[in-house]
Design a protein around this nucleic acid. Structure first.
Lengths: 253, 253
DNA sequence: CGCCGCCTTGACCACCATCAAGTGGAGTGG
DNA sequence: CCACTCCACTTGATGGTGGTCAAGGCGGCG
């Protein structure tokens, strides 16, 4: 069984077999974390780097008035906090949304790896830049896309990301989120998240059974959301759910 | 006259005099750029790293339907694209909003500096993490804050950032933006940006004369916006416009 | 002088928030 | 085995924040 972190980095950078083994060696120390459990909270200063191997986690911030905004999803293969050793303290929290398996990697191991293997240094660099790209894209969605396209865009992105780590098949993937968590992600109320989901279902864009979500026609959903996967910076879009020959760039709803 | 980039890095990391001189040496090659000019556009792959020394620039993305979202402001001292050499191509564009002075730094110079001086490597790392923190905070605002607080929050942030590079005095700073650019930043229409500004003016939170904006009572505006500067990761908030002893954390409107 | 941005104002309307109530399934204890 | 609870999802009614459309004022500049 393949390591999702290695799969993800291979989707965006070129690595040798030896590189992959070095990466894999980082993830030996694993632990199970139940759903709805914080891994790190705001204003802490963590020692280990965390990596999601299975499950689903998120980055979030809570406002004084109690409202919460989820600012990133962390799916298998994603580092939670590759960086934060540089900063004094966290400016946000990280918590699981579903039962997960997490690897704890000592910061020193990461530092040593990047000092000795420039290809891996570049790969980790790449991963953080993709995270930043996703953040920008979410901001664009919040500012400019109406609810339905915002949701549709998120579902497209998740499909691509899950696919890159082998967690999507046949346009379907497992999305262990409540509608209220979706709402906190998309900046809308639970009620409206519900109605927006129904809209996409009635439009034939998606179908759901339990926590499985299926996208019968990915190109159609992409078009609706004007989803352009370039911000994920995978090496080629063709293997990642896009029918060959279809470039989304610049298409119009 | 101090170099804004050096000032900014000193606001967040500890540097020696020699470090500062090394940094300063990077910025010798300067050039003037008129307002509303792109420095890099989407899907390009730039060779130089750009740095804003004077003026005002932004990161933005344009949607197929023509709407634009500004996803970051680049003020004096900010690097535009410290990173992008790692990625194949840009997923967004960078352009000036006001007449600016920009330094072009060869990527290799940066790489050499970070290889030979770990304190500077850390400082640049820090700068990119702060950019990411700002991005997260903007996303939180978009998702959860109503228009008036969102604008107020942005004005607080800009005050802190301008202050860190010596461009704020007495709660005032120069903000060379049109209301329509503000609107593209805050995810609202020009009309509404105008009305929201009036609201803050009538509330006595801010006053404007031309492009100068003044904040008579920063603590009051902070409170209104529930602005907490921790995400900027400056070493101490006291020098940056916050009255000593006032910590915004957890205050409530 | 006249054009062109930018700011401003008014009227109207839609998207989405809020409030409230009801359904249904999963787990628990009597 | 069946209430009972809890939580996620669903639906309806109502209203407000902010979008859209349209027009007018004002200053700068050719």
């Amino acid at each position: 069984m393949a390591n999702p972190m290695v799969m993800k980095l291979r989707a965006g950078t070129k690595l040798t077999e030896a590189d992959c083994q070095q990466l894999e060696a980082l993830t030996v120390k694993r632990r199970e974390v139940p759903a709805r459990t914080d891994l790190i909270t705001e204003s802490e200063a963590p020692l280990n780097v965390h990596l999601v191997l299975e499950g689903f986690a998120c980055r979030y911030k809570t406002l004084p008035n109690g409202r919460r905004q989820i600012v990133a999803y962390l799916i298998p293969g994603d580092f939670c906090d590759l960086h934060v050793a540089v900063l004094g303290e966290m400016d946000h929290s990280i918590g699981t949304l579903a039962p997960s398996i997490v690897a704890d990697i000592p910061s020193e191991d990461i530092i040593e790896l990047t000092m000795t293997n420039p290809r891996l240094a570049r790969a980790l660099w790449w991963a953080t830049l993709v995270d930043e790209g996703i953040l920008r894209e979410w901001l664009v969605g919040m500012g400019q896309r109406p609810a339905a396209q915002r949701l549709a865009h998120l579902l497209c992105e998740l499909h691509a990301r899950f696919d890159a780590v082998g967690h999507a098949a046949d346009g379907s993937y497992h999305l262990p989120l409540t509608q209220s968590e979706l709402a906190d992600t998309l900046g809308m109320t639970t009620v409206h998240a519900n109605r927006t989901l129904q809209l996409l279902r009635r439009g034939g864009y998606i179908s759901t059974q339990g926590q499985m979500i299926s996208i019968p026609d990915f190109a159609r959903l992409s078009m609706f959301a004007s989803f352009d996967p370039n911000y994920l910076h995978y090496i080629n879009g063709e293997t990642l759910g896009l029918p060959p020959g279809i470039k989304m760039r610049g298409t119009q709803t």
